[in-house]
Structure formats: C-alpha cells, structure tokens
Design a protein around this nucleic acid. Structure first.
Lengths: 245, 245
DNA sequence: CGTCGAGTTGAAACTCATCAAAGTTCGTGG
DNA sequence: CCACGAACTTTGATGAGTTTCAACTCGACG
C-alpha cells in the first residue's frame, strides 16, 4: 500500500486531538506550516519500536491512535518504563538535549503516529513563537508529571499507587473524549508493575482485591471503575478542607 | 545596603558557571541581551523561599551560589522534595506550563540567585534561537534526570539509592570545579531521606554503615568519598563491557 | 542551664518481594 | 479454523528489607 494512502484526510487542521497536541493555540497559517513538516507513517504493530536509545535523534512523535511505552535500560540491563503515551501525547522530549535518543519507545498495540522531524521543528519554531511556546508548555507539563510521579513512588503504598494509576488513566481517557469509567489498559500487568515500582504479583493481587471489594470490575485488560469516589479515597486524595482548620 | 551593591562585577559575561547555565553557546551580543534582563538580588538566607506554589509565575531563577531545594506539597499535606539545586542550575521549569508556580523553592543555606523575569525571557527567546535552544536543552535534561530518578526509586534498594545520591553530588561538584571527593551536603538527613524515599533513620544507619566499612567518611554534613570505585559498585553500576559480549 | 532540633541506634512490626505452581489467554502455523 | 506452545495472569506461602516506635546523644541558642 502506498504511503500516500495513510495520509488521506489526516492533517492537523481536522485532527480530533489537536487541542492536546502541538497545534494547540496555533493560528491557521501556523497550523498549515506545521502540517507541512509532519510525516504520517504506516501503522505500527504491537511491539514495534519508534526508536531506540543510541540512535541519532531524528524526530519527535505524536501519537495519533493506539498507545506506546517509553522506557530506559540501565547499565545493569533492566528496563524501566518511564511513561505510557496515549493519543495526543508527544514522545521524545527526554532526548532533545542529546544527539541521540536516550530512551526507547515501543508500541503497545496497533498504533499510528505523526512523525515530526526534529530539524524542521527547530526551524519552524524559530518562525512561530506560538509553536515554540506550546513545545515549552508540553515539556514543562512533562516535568511536572514526572515530579508528581516521584512523589507517588516516595510516599504511597502499593494500593495507593495502583488506585492513582487507574484514576490517572480515567482522566486521560476522559480528556480524549472517551469514557472515564470504562476502558482498556493496553499494557500488561508486568508493565504496570514496572512503571509503578511493584511486582506483577502485587498488581494482580491488588486488582483482584479491588474487584472483590466492588470498587472496580476487572476483566482481563478491561477495567470498569464502579466507585470512583472510593477509588479516590484509596488513592490517598483528601479534601483540602480537612487540612485547613 | 543598596541593591546596586550586589550587582557589582556580577554578570553573565564573567560568570564562572555560565557553561552550565543559560549563557552556554551564546555569542557575545546575545549574552549582553540576556544579561540585560537578569536581576540580581540580595542573598537569600537559609530557609527563605524564592516562590511558593500558587503564586503568579514571575521569573525563573538561576543559582549563583549556595543551594536550594524544590518541593511540592500534596493534597494530604506532606512535602516531597523533587530536586536539589546547585550553582548554575535553573529553577522553575516545572511551572512554565502554568500561570502560577506549581512547586516551592527554598534556600538550604545563604545563597544568591539570578532572577530571570519570565516575560522577558520569552520575548528574548523569540529573538535569539540559540537561547531558545539552550532553554529546551536544559528542560530536556531535567526530564531525562527525572526519568533516571524514577528508575532509581523503582529498582534500587536503600543502600544503592544513597550511594547513587552521593556519586551524583560528587559529579555535580566536580563539574563546578569543586572537589569530587570531599564536599558538604547542605541538606539535613531528613531532606535526603525525603528525596530518596527513605526515612531519616535509614539514611543515618546507612551513612554509619558506609563510614564503618571505610568507603566514605562522615562528619556531620561533611562527606569524604574514600573509595569511589567501591561506592560505584554499591550504587549498582556495572561496566558496559560486562553486558556486551 | 534548659530546651529544641538534628542525628544516631536498637527492637519490633509490617509491607511487599520472592519463589513456586497452576490457570488462562494469545498468537502463530499447520 | 483449530491446536499448540509461549506469554501472561492469578493465587499461596515465606522471608527480607525498610518503616515505625522509642530512647538517647549532641550541639546551638536564648
């Protein structure tokens, strides 16, 4: 199938998730220019990699559909998942300080991406202050999210971590116009555990426990949040009013 | 004392740590422009805050001397230190996606900073591609460092975390032209523990253990790394050659 | 001189990892 | 389309590592 076929009717101007992505706040002229530098590739099958650590930094990627994981591999060989990416998310910000990628990105299911050649993006950013600011906003958001993650790992126990994880995905699906109560987790239990600093067994046990207690319903990769408020309690969320006397 | 007094002979052009900071790669003209927007304030005393979460985002800060901690406060009220900042480090990247600061920054000892008004920096970045790229490089480095931190917390035990922490500071002091073997940690044991996801007691016990084993010498806040290679072993560092056959 | 915060050390408790084993789903080739 | 093997998931028993609780020391400071 020709490359052209994938491009039909796909552009930033009509993209349903552009408000989460680079186009946000761009005027029409800027949008056209951005659209011009973006390459839309064939779908990636589950397990295919966008890039590997050490390869020359060629492009950033925006998820169009499906999902990806980013991960690093430490000197001693074990992998650490550093993020899960949903449509609208940008992949590669952790590498742009380096001539080569500093992490791996791999598809978790059949997925499509927009490839944004890094050189072109830099040049275009020189011309379009709005684009530049959106890039910085997105990078700053990623830093913020990472700090939150540090706090999660340092201060919360296994159950709180998993509850927070589920609520995070709930929010992210919601902001993409999908159900916040019912969704499919494209990653394995092992990947959830790796991300949260827990073992597969602990993740599995806790999902079973939450299921039995009626807070959520679990059917393989499908999750149904039945009592979101209870889940928020478990996640360690407390009302501000409890603290300010 | 007049504000002017602090400014004497302090500028980006002659700053000893400019290669770690924003000026890196800037030409002389750009450097002058950057220097123009920077405000240099009186020293901050230990415990004074640069900003608090919720305050309007006014400026980024570059550490000139001394040290700071950044921290967030979760809904349930406990603080999480997200970074320690040494001279040359920039503070505030986690907030520029927001109209207000998303974290706190507090001096750990008598310290000086360069205040970089955010509006001015944005305007100047529009004119100076080199500056813009350095900002992005620094933000990307911070993302990278945060990902490494995730990996540390998820995969390493208490001893490996502390060893890694000490080696990290060793490297950072070294790149600032200071001794990599002998330095003073300006934060308390509790702050080290908070950052590493450990309790004060664990940090104290491990420092004692490392001291007794002769790997390091501890005298209050002063640390002397006696066997850096042994410390690297404890940190879990292995040679690449062990993995690539 | 007494108090207060920081640091150290010990003993007990608890959470989660580890090891083991069985059950289930997925994907691929016949 | 089905069957087979591999990958993934679940559940149980045990133990290691870290937290928690408690007591004590030390130095700073009014």
């Amino acid at each position: 199938m020709s490359e052209r076929a994938w491009n039909n009717n796909i552009n930033c101007q009509n993209c349903s998730i552009s408000q989460l992505c680079l186009p946000y706040t761009l005027d029409n002229l800027s949008l056209d220019k951005l659209d011009d530098i973006i390459e839309r590739k064939r779908p990636y099958r589950k397990g295919e990699q966008l890039f590997q650590a050490g390869q020359p930094l060629k492009a950033l990627y925006a998820v169009r559909s499906g999902s990806f994981k980013s991960f690093t591999v430490s000197n001693d060989g074990d992998a650490q998942i550093t993020a899960f990416h949903l449509p609208g998310d940008l992949i590669g910000f952790d590498s742009i300080h380096s001539p080569t990628y500093t992490s791996f990105a791999e598809s978790l299911e059949t997925s499509m991406v927009c490839e944004i050649p890094f050189q072109s993006l830099e040049k275009l950013s020189d011309q379009l202050p709005l684009l530049r600011r959106q890039v910085m906003r997105l990078m700053s958001s990623e830093i913020s999210a990472d700090k939150q993650m540090l706090s999660l790992l340092n201060n919360k126990n296994a159950e709180q971590r998993l509850a927070t994880f589920l609520l995070d995905f709930s929010e992210r699906f919601k902001s993409r116009g999908l159900s916040s109560k019912e969704f499919r987790l494209s990653m394995t239990r092992a990947e959830v555990g790796n991300f949260l600093g827990l073992t597969v067994e602990t993740v599995s046990r806790l999902l079973s426990k939450l299921h039995k207690s009626g807070v959520i319903q679990v059917d393989g990769k499908f999750i149904l949040l039945q009592q979101i408020d209870a889940l928020q309690q478990l996640a360690g969320v407390q009302l501000r009013s409890c603290l300010t006397p």
